[in-house]
Nucleic acid binder design. Structure first.
Length: 729
DNA sequence: TTAGTTAAGATTTTT
DNA sequence: TCTTAACTAA
């Protein structure tokens, strides 16, 4: 047989065998940095080039949009245009893609909304209220996670009530769950969990649909298989169908999402579930130095339940891992800062350096240190563009244009900008809707409500604007044009310009940026329309804004680091209680997952790994003595180097609170002394509000007040308490 | 309806 | 300690 194997000549033997094994179940145990994406993409290329499989017969599933995008790009690189035809999607987007075709089969109609967490939670909040449950015991967040977890486990409301303990608490949750499903349906909406669950139900209930997809996608590939939950597992088996040409890739040692329902048994038991599974182990690491790999290996072997495999590398031994003990978190930040400065002197680059921490709260110290020294940094996976309130408002507005029954979105924006429809009015409308068994939008349209005259008027006004915008949709106008006139017509622009404080202007700018992103979508699509756009971004959460700076330090939680790599990694806060986190200490499996998490962190580093821990750190504002993480003692001492950093072990200073006190005092004094230097007309910089101009000064001594104008608003400050920088006097 | 105050609660978060 | 949500006063 003529085969073009040239393109896989660069692969090692196990990689090749994985690429060439195309029929039947295949389990690829891919250690960290072992080139798994390479294997997946080459396997796809091999199927198409050598096995004459049509590109659209292959479906690859990932967890993140980022991974899907990267995989598609790499496939296109190998195959050029036909790479576009390979179906590469996230679990959720594939399911959405399927469900959009059969909305009526899952009792919805076209144009249904996908609820994000905040919309789900506000619906739950309503339900908790309507059921007159104690809102201290029933928190939307907690209930939401119980419900989502149940969905991940394929437990429907009825089963929930049957299976779970019959105490009143769980009974109530069962009631909430039932009602939640009903209301969501009425609103023509789905939540994230539904996307997978309803697809599973659809494929099970309609064999002809399942057959259709089984014939369409003959080859299924699943990335990060260790992270699949039960529901996703069932989905993959349904997609694999009778042919069972299913290739799963994963690493049990990197399973760090069990708390989100990921079931590590899915990968551990794959060979039991699929007879004649062919197993390939990718154990050669191409990323890190020997020292780093040895450290990671010695750590992870302390876990009990894992597939037997050992990572190795042919790279150089490399530098020793630097272990540094710091008196306080501030010292730790300073240590990292100084090291970063040193590294920058050598490399002239920040972009290959990352700082990891276990919990988000730890980032502050590093942010502070970097900001003070004007070193650019970005928090990866931090606050996302689409999480901003104003963007969510825009989304909600656009959503109700497509799906007016989506009461959740409607309630979100009905009083933004303020229309005199406060909590009481909204509650009336909502209850009215429930009574009449229609959506709130329908109630608005009927208009015979017992609201104040002014409220009625503003509703009428809202509806007339709504109609104008609807007409634009009917006329197939561009989504960006609709969004633009929405911002004006609905009074969003006026509202934000009216309170022209820096924050509002910022929000307006974000909205403009949002509209720009819609335009980008239009430019890259043949027949752009609003509903397709919303469909696309409903599952799109990452920060896709064209950031100006390209060279920056990356700060992130260890969870976020999975799948990434950096020349230099700072793994910080390696103390008992922080990492492993105290919440995980109760169960053995909890500590094992923390260990895997630590393994993930270590294996991100290519060259340099700096591990640090503090003698004292704060928890909820209380200073506590800390012991080094148990994980540190699981790594052979000879891999560490503490010598050159030992000088940094300054004696225990009054940790923290005192430092802050001193700092505040000096600030206070500085301002007292400098009080006289502020005068009307001075340009000053405020930490929060930015640059402003002093328009008035009143009072004497410590009572001296300054009225400062920022943009279009004025604010009063007591000078002694306000840290102000003089920009121009 | 809003602004201001107070009390509670505080891992991790691919979609 | 710091943030957020729930309460209270204007």
């Amino acid at each position: 047989m003529d085969m073009n194997l040239e393109f896989i000549s660069g692969l090692n033997e196990p990689q090749k065998s994985a690429v060439l094994h195309t029929e039947g179940p295949l389990l690829i145990l891919a250690g960290a940095g072992s080139g798994k994406t390479r294997v997946i993409t080459h396997r796809i290329a091999h199927l198409i080039i050598n096995k004459n499989i049509y590109p659209y017969k292959i479906c690859a599933l990932t967890f993140t949009n980022k991974a899907a995008k990267e995989m598609q790009e790499r496939v296109i690189k190998l195959l050029s245009n036909s790479g576009n035809l390979v179906m590469i999607k996230t679990f959720h987007s594939l399911c959405l893609y399927i469900l959009r075709k059969y909305p009526e089969k899952i009792n919805l109609h076209s144009g249904f909304t996908v609820y994000d967490t905040s919309l789900s939670e506000s619906l739950l909040k309503e339900i908790i209220k309507d059921l007159s449950l104690d809102n201290k015991a029933f928190k939307p967040k907690n209930i939401s996670s119980v419900i989502q977890n149940s969905k991940d486990k394929m437990i429907l409301p009825e089963e929930f009530l049957d299976e779970l303990p019959k105490d009143s608490f769980y009974k109530s949750i069962g009631k909430i769950y039932t009602l939640y499903e009903e209301r969501k349906m009425e609103r023509n909406a789905l939540d994230f969990g539904d996307l997978i669950l309803k697809t599973v139900i659809l494929l099970k209930e309609y064999p002809e649909i399942k057959n259709y997809y089984n014939n369409l996608w003959e080859y299924i590939m699943v990335d990060e298989y260790q992270d699949t939950n039960k529901c996703q597992y069932i989905l993959t088996t349904l997609l694999a169908g009778e042919k069972k040409n299913i290739c799963v890739v994963g690493d049990d040692d990197q399973s760090i999402y069990s708390w989100r329902g990921a079931d590590i048994r899915n990968i551990l038991d794959f060979e039991k579930d699929y007879k004649n599974t062919y197993i390939v182990k990718l154990e050669e690491n191409y990323r890190s130095t020997q020292n780093i790999i040895t450290a990671a290996g010695s750590l992870i072997k302390n876990n009990s339940d894992r597939k037997d495999k050992t990572l190795f590398t042919n790279k150089e031994i490399g530098k020793k891992i630097t272990l540094t003990e710091c008196p306080s978190e501030m010292d730790e930040a300073r240590f990292v800062l100084n090291k970063i400065k040193d590294l920058y002197k050598f490399t002239g680059k920040y972009s290959k350096i990352a700082v990891f921490y276990r919990t988000n709260a730890q980032s502050r110290f590093f942010e502070e240190a970097l900001r003070e020294n004007n070193i650019p940094y970005k928090i990866y996976g931090g606050f996302r563009f689409y999480d901003r309130a104003e963007i969510k408002d825009m989304m909600a507005y656009l959503t109700i244009l497509i799906n007016p029954d989506d009461t959740g979105s409607l309630l979100r924006i009905i009083n933004f900008p303020p229309r005199g429809l406060g909590d009481t009015s909204l509650e009336k409308l909502r209850l009215n809707a429930i009574e009449n068994n229609v959506s709130v939008f329908e109630i608005l349209k009927r208009g015979n409500t017992d609201l104040r005259k002014s409220a009625k008027l503003s509703i009428e006004n809202f509806l007339s604007n709504y109609n104008d915008l609807s007409i634009m949709i009917k006329n197939n106008m561009n989504p960006s044009a609709i969004a633009k006139s929405l911002v004006v017509q609905m009074g969003i622009e006026d509202e934000l310009k009216k309170n022209a404080d820096p924050e509002s202007l910022d929000r307006l700018e974000n909205i403009e940026q949002f509209i720009e992103s819609i335009q980008e979508y239009e430019d890259s699509t043949e027949n752009p329309n609003l509903s397709e756009y919303l469909n696309m971004i409903s599952l799109y959460t990452s920060e896709e804004d064209g950031v100006e700076i390209t060279d920056y330090i990356t700060l992130m939680t260890v969870h976020n680091s999975k799948g990434l790599e950096f020349d230099t990694v700072f793994l910080t806060g390696m103390e008992e209680g922080t990492f492993p986190h105290f919440m995980s200490l109760e169960e053995k499996m909890g500590v094992e997952e923390e260990r895997r998490l630590c393994y993930v962190a270590i294996t991100r580093a290519m060259q340099d790994l700096y591990i640090s821990h503090c003698q004292y750190s704060r928890k909820y504002g209380e200073i506590q003595k800390r012991e080094p993480s148990r994980f540190l003692s699981e790594i052979p001492e000879n891999l560490f180097q503490t010598g050159s950093e030992i000088s940094y072990r300054t004696p225990i200073r009054a940790p923290f609170a005192k430092e802050r006190e001193i700092k505040e005092k000096t600030n206070f004094q500085a301002n007292s002394i400098n009080n006289s230097t502020f005068k009307v007309g001075s340009k000053v910089k405020h930490r929060e509000y930015g640059i402003g101009k002093i328009v008035d000064i009143s009072g004497v001594g410590d009572n001296k007040k300054a009225k400062i104008r920022f943009g279009y608003t004025e604010k009063n400050f007591l000078l002694v308490y306000t840290p102000l920088e003089i920009v121009e006097n």
